[in-house]
Every structure is written in C-alpha cells, then in structure tokens.
C-alpha cells in the first residue's frame, strides 16, 4: 500500500500487477476466479488522490474519490449536474461507498454508467507513470471493451470534467431489475440552445457518441426533424444479442429514449 506517487510508481509494472481503488470490480473478478493477479497495489493510503478541485473551467476528481462522495459534493452538483444524475444509478449504497470514477473508467465496460457522464463532460484523463504525466481525452483513452491506453506502469491520478452548468442534463437507463442492474441500454445527454451532446451505453463495444446526429442538431435549424435525428443517432450503435437482451430490443429502447430526450428537453428547456 503505497502512500505517495514515488512509492506507487516504484511498485507498478511487473507481469500481472493490478491497481485497486474501491475493489468493487477487481475483487469480484478475483473471487470468481476470472483474474488472479500476483500482486495488488491498493490506493487506499495514497495521499493527494482524494480531492475534488475547482480548476475554473474544469473540475478535477481524484482517483480515490468514491461515488458517494461525488453525490454529496456541492461543487459537482452545481457545475456538472449530469454526473450525480448518472452516479445515483450505480449499484447500491454499499457499492457507491467504495466504487470510484477512475475504477469505472479503467474498467472500460460499454455499460459503465459514469463513463457516459465523462464523454458528455468532454473529460480529460490525467495519467501518470515512470515517464511522467500525460493527458488524454476519455474518447481516445478507451480503446475497446475493457481496454484503455493505460500501460502497465501507469495509473490514473485524476479525471478532469468540463463544467456544463448551462446545459440541460438527462440520463435514462433501462435495466432488467431496478436494483443494481447492469444497463441493457442507456442514453445520456446535455443540451443547450445550440448544441447537443449525447452518449449511448451498452449498445456498442464502448460507450458510443452519435456524432452525425449531434452535428445535424447544430446545423439543421428550422428544418430539424426528430425522425432524421433518430436515424442518424442509430448509426452510432451496434447492439448485440446477449443474455440480458436482444439486439432488436436494445435498438428499440435507444430509439425511444432518444425521442424521450428530445421531448423532455422541449418541455423543460
């Protein structure tokens, strides 16, 4: 259990060394035998990773900050309202008391709920390693399901979210049962007068952004048509059949949630 960056860096690397934050993913995978790292480096004692900082245009969230702490933070509620909206839907209080944003991100699940908020907030990942620090946008940091650009001797120190107080946030998640369900499909969005940001969960190998639809929203002006927006949005998804739902069901859910997003925004916005 390293206590500072120097010590942490000296412990990383090695064949199958794993970093542990809240352990809500890692320990479940170890218990089920799907993973057996020879060494686990816990961040539990790390200094300086537990802060939520106001950086002006952005908010920095340290890698040890738990989901429960995010829900209680006034700065986040005021400047990144989409984040608590999404985090509230994650697991149970027990899970949220341990789980971290960085753990959810590095896990890189296409169903990772908080990753949706990171895409919508144009988040930057602050990565440190023996060779110093580098920064990367979340969209390029995630390479595929469970895969990121993180190398073995690197770790995520913090995540920076763009403040989005002027946007109308929405998040819809459809799961199998209300309690702690992994999303079958989810749609998150931020809408201002001129701009829409949208992200889909669980309907592609990673969280998906319907870029063509977003461009259309910004350019169409008077001619804007919901059907055309939905058609373009659906180009971004490649849902699969799996134990939780069929591809057809997933597409239908996404289409309906996209329409709901537009409807709710018109009513409130």
């Amino acid at each position: 259990m390293p206590v500072d960056e120097r010590e942490l860096k000296s412990m990383l690397g090695g064949e199958d060394c794993k970093i542990m934050a809240g352990g809500t993913d890692l320990l479940v995978r170890i218990r089920s035998g799907r993973l057996s790292p020879s060494r686990i480096v816990s961040l539990a004692r790390m200094k300086g990773m537990d802060g939520i900082l106001d950086l002006g245009e952005e908010v920095s969230i340290g890698s040890r900050v738990t989901m429960s702490e995010l829900l209680k933070c006034e700065l986040i509620a005021a400047s990144c309202p989409i984040l608590p909206m999404v985090v509230r839907e994650i697991g149970s209080p027990q899970i949220r008391n341990r789980a971290t944003l960085a753990g959810n991100l590095v896990n890189a699940s296409p169903a990772g709920d908080s990753i949706m908020a990171l895409y919508l907030s144009n988040a930057t990942v602050v990565i440190s390693g023996v060779n110093g620090e580098r920064r990367e946008k979340v969209s390029s940091f995630i390479k595929g399901p469970g895969r990121t650009t993180l190398s073995r001797d690197e770790y995520v120190g913090a995540i920076l979210l763009e403040k989005t107080p002027g946007y109308f946030p929405q998040f819809y998640k459809v799961g199998q049962r209300s309690a702690m369900a992994i999303a079958v499909a989810s749609v998150g969005s931020l809408i201002s007068g001129q701009e829409i940001r949208m992200a889909f969960g669980s309907v592609a190998p990673t969280v998906a952004v319907p870029e063509k639809a977003c461009e259309y929203f910004e350019k169409a002006g008077e001619k804007f048509d919901d059907g055309e927006f939905a058609r373009l949005a659906m180009l971004a998804i490649s849902p699969i059949d799996d134990v939780r739902a069929s591809a057809w069901y997933r597409s239908t859910v996404v289409k309906n949630l996209v329409q709901r997003t537009l409807n709710v925004w018109r009513k409130k916005g």
């Binding site: 259990m1 542990m20 352990g23 809500t24 320990l27 479940v28 218990r31 686990i40 816990s42 539990a44 429960s68 149970s92 209080p93 027990q94 899970i95 008391n97 341990r98």
Partner: peptide
C-alpha cells in the same frame, strides 16, 4: 448485501473488501 458492515459509519460489503484496506 448479507455481508454488510459499517466502516467509519458507512455500509460496505465485507465479502469484497480486503481486511488490510
């Protein structure tokens, strides 16, 4: 949730928490 305990007053799951942490 049957393995819930409170750590510093907050509920967590002891089945997936290292004692060392």
């Amino acid at each position: 949730g049957t393995c819930t305990v409170l750590v510093n007053g907050k509920p967590i799951l002891s089945c997936s928490t290292f004692a060392a942490s």
